[in-house]
Computed example of a mutant assay.
Amino acid sequence: MILQAQIPYDLSQMKPLPGIAPLDPADWLQVDDAFAPQMEERARLLREVRETVLGIEPEAMPAAQELLEVVLAHLPGGYTRDGEQVTRPDGVVVTLDRGDPMGTLGVLVQEDLCLLQKRGDEHVLTGAVLCFPAGWRLADKISRPLSIIHVPIPEYDDNIGRRVQRLFDGVQQGRPLMRVNRLFHDDPLLHQPVPRRSNNDRAAPETAPYLRSERQCLLRLPETRAVVFSIHTYVVRRGPETL
Results as ranks from 00 to 15, higher is better:
residue 1 M to V: 15
residue 3 L to K: 06
residue 8 P to Y: 08
residue 9 Y to G: 03
residue 11 L to G: 02
residue 12 S to A: 13
residue 14 M to I: 10
residue 14 M to W: 03
residue 16 P to D: 00
residue 18 P to V: 04
residue 20 I to R: 01
residue 21 A to M: 13
residue 23 L to P: 05
residue 26 A to E: 14
residue 28 W to A: 13
residue 30 Q to T: 14
residue 31 V to A: 04
residue 31 V to Q: 04
residue 32 D to S: 11
residue 32 D to V: 03
residue 33 D to E: 06
residue 33 D to C: 08
residue 35 F to G: 05
residue 36 A to D: 12
residue 37 P to R: 00
residue 38 Q to E: 13
residue 40 E to P: 02
residue 41 E to M: 14
residue 43 A to R: 15
residue 43 A to H: 07
residue 45 L to P: 08
residue 48 E to Y: 08
residue 49 V to T: 13
residue 51 E to Y: 10
residue 52 T to N: 12
residue 52 T to W: 05
residue 54 L to A: 03
residue 54 L to P: 01
residue 58 P to H: 00
residue 58 P to A: 10
residue 59 E to R: 13
residue 60 A to L: 01
residue 61 M to C: 01
residue 63 A to D: 09
residue 65 Q to G: 10
residue 70 V to R: 14
residue 70 V to T: 14
residue 70 V to N: 10
residue 70 V to W: 14
residue 70 V to A: 14
residue 74 H to R: 15
residue 76 P to D: 12
residue 76 P to L: 09
residue 79 Y to A: 11
residue 79 Y to N: 10
residue 80 T to W: 13
residue 82 D to I: 11
residue 84 E to P: 07
residue 84 E to N: 15
residue 85 Q to G: 11
residue 85 Q to L: 12
residue 86 V to M: 11
residue 88 R to K: 12
residue 91 G to Q: 12
residue 92 V to K: 15
residue 99 G to C: 07
residue 99 G to I: 00
residue 100 D to M: 09
residue 102 M to A: 12
residue 103 G to I: 04
residue 107 V to T: 13
residue 109 V to K: 01
residue 109 V to C: 12
residue 110 Q to H: 14
residue 116 L to P: 06
residue 117 Q to V: 11
residue 119 R to F: 07
residue 121 D to V: 10
residue 121 D to P: 09
residue 121 D to C: 08
residue 122 E to R: 10
residue 123 H to C: 09
residue 123 H to I: 08
residue 125 L to V: 00
residue 126 T to N: 05
residue 128 A to W: 06
residue 128 A to N: 05
residue 129 V to W: 03
residue 130 L to A: 08
residue 132 F to P: 02
residue 133 P to A: 03
residue 134 A to R: 04
residue 140 D to S: 06
residue 140 D to C: 06
residue 141 K to D: 05
residue 144 R to D: 05
residue 145 P to K: 11
residue 149 I to K: 01
residue 150 H to K: 01
residue 156 Y to P: 03
residue 156 Y to T: 04
residue 156 Y to R: 09
residue 157 D to R: 02
residue 159 N to Q: 13
residue 159 N to P: 00
residue 161 G to V: 09
residue 164 V to H: 10
residue 172 Q to V: 12
residue 178 M to L: 15
residue 179 R to I: 01
residue 180 V to K: 02
residue 183 L to S: 09
residue 184 F to Y: 15
residue 185 H to V: 13
residue 185 H to R: 15
residue 188 P to H: 03
residue 189 L to Q: 15
residue 190 L to W: 05
residue 191 H to L: 08
residue 197 R to A: 15
residue 203 A to T: 00
residue 204 A to W: 07
residue 207 T to S: 14
residue 208 A to I: 05
residue 209 P to Y: 06
residue 209 P to Q: 06
residue 210 Y to R: 04
residue 213 S to C: 05
residue 213 S to Y: 00
residue 218 L to P: 00
residue 219 L to I: 13
residue 220 R to Q: 13
residue 223 E to D: 13
residue 223 E to G: 07
residue 224 T to E: 05
residue 226 A to Q: 09
residue 228 V to H: 08
residue 234 Y to F: 14
residue 235 V to Q: 04
residue 238 R to K: 05
residue 239 G to A: 07
residue 239 G to P: 08
residue 240 P to E: 11
residue 241 E to R: 10
residue 243 L to H: 09
residue 243 L to T: 12
